[in-house]
Structure formats: C-alpha cells, structure tokens
Design a binder for these strands. Structure first.
Length: 190
DNA sequence: GACAAGATTTGCT
DNA sequence: GCAAATCTTGTCG
C-alpha cells in the first residue's frame, strides 16, 4: 500500500516527536497482543551532532534515511537495543527515539520479558525494546504492518507536553529535544 | 586491519 | 553514587 498513512510523520523531527506522544504501539508476539502508549520521545536529525546520521549515510543507519513510518533499531553498549520511528522526508536522516511507554495491554507478557513489574519495566529506551521483544531483526520494519503497528492517537485534554534537555548522550546535551507527557509515572526520571 | 566510543541498565560499595 | 558488562559500527593509521 503506497499510501501516505504516515504523512503526519513527514515533518521535522521535533514536531514528529511531539506528535508521537500519546500514540499507541501494538506488538503481536507469540499469538498475544501487547499494546503500549508512547509517553516519552527524543528527536534526532542529521544536523544533530549526537545523531547517528550526523556524518552521513552508513550501512547501519540507512533505515533512518528511508521514508517515515519505519522502525530503526540499533544495538548499543553491547547489551541494549533502542528503537526509533523514522520521520521527516525520505533521505533526510531524521528519527524519533522512543524513550518510554505506558503498558495498556499484555502487561503480563511485558513483565515476563523484563523480569520486572510496574513502571520500572518500560521507563527507558533499552527497556522498551526488551519489553516489546524488539531486536535488530525488526530494523526497517514498516509500522503500518504486523507484527508491530503504530496507531495515531491524541493526548487527553488534561495532559500536556513538556520539553526538556536531553539525557544519556555526550554531545549537544543542552538541546531541548526531549519530550514527554507531564506527570506521567512511566517517564524515565534520572 | 586495529582501536575507541557509544541515543543504557544494573548492581555493588 | 559510581563502575562494570559487552559487542557492533565508524573512524583512523
């Protein structure tokens, strides 16, 4: 389907990061369904010194140079996966890191995958991937197709987006490119 | 062909 | 609060 289902993601990374807040991610795993809500994101684009795409296209980040609505998964620190939603226009090299989610359905599966329960199971980039069973074989996946789908949702009226400094990186840390839903208990703290 | 660093998490001092 | 665990990719010689 060469539709523009993800036209709403074909915008600058910062805008896409805001729009992704509150959206749901549906993951089919072993015949079960896991449904979560995105509560924290972080924007990356090619002009960002801390981005993988800063020095141009490589074999690893080629997914981020694809079209919006795809999944970019990378492996880091020898033990963790992080997942991003590609955004912007094709060839732009922009994406949004999913930093934290709120479990809505299939919580028992999440707890089983993580070996933990409560908010500690999904309040971090590496945790989200482990909880949803995402690894680098999902890199480049089309988020309009199973087993992982992205569903656009709006925030509730009483919820507001907070813009904050980035964390966990060593370059351009002062940039205000991290977004999260105010007062949501599943947001990573630090 | 070899070396250094990394969008993190967890456990111990 | 700090340091280790662990391996892939990118950069440099």
């Amino acid at each position: 389907m060469a539709t523009f289902s993800f036209a709403w993601l074909s915008v600058p990374a910062e805008e896409a990061a805001r729009r992704l807040l509150g959206c749901e991610l549906v993951r089919k795993l072993n015949g079960r369904t896991i449904r979560v809500r995105i509560v924290e994101t972080e924007a990356y684009d090619q002009a960002d010194e801390a981005s993988h795409t800063f020095r141009g296209k490589t074999k690893r980040n080629s997914t981020m140079f694809g079209s919006a609505g795809h999944l970019y998964v990378y492996f880091t620190y020898g033990m963790h996966y992080c997942c991003n939603v590609v955004c912007g226009k094709e060839g732009q090299g922009a994406g949004v890191l999913i930093r934290a989610v709120e479990p809505l359905e299939g919580i028992d599966i999440i707890e089983q995958n993580r070996g933990l329960s409560g908010k500690n199971a999904t309040n971090g980039p590496g945790k989200v991937c482990q909880a949803l069973g995402i690894d680098r074989t999902q890199d480049g996946h089309d988020l309009s197709q199973p087993p992982i789908m992205l569903i656009k949702k709006s925030l509730r009226k009483d919820e507001k987006v907070v813009t904050a400094k980035r964390i966990g990186i060593s370059k351009a840390v002062h940039e205000l490119r991290r977004f999260y839903i105010a007062d949501n208990p599943y947001v990573s703290k630090r």
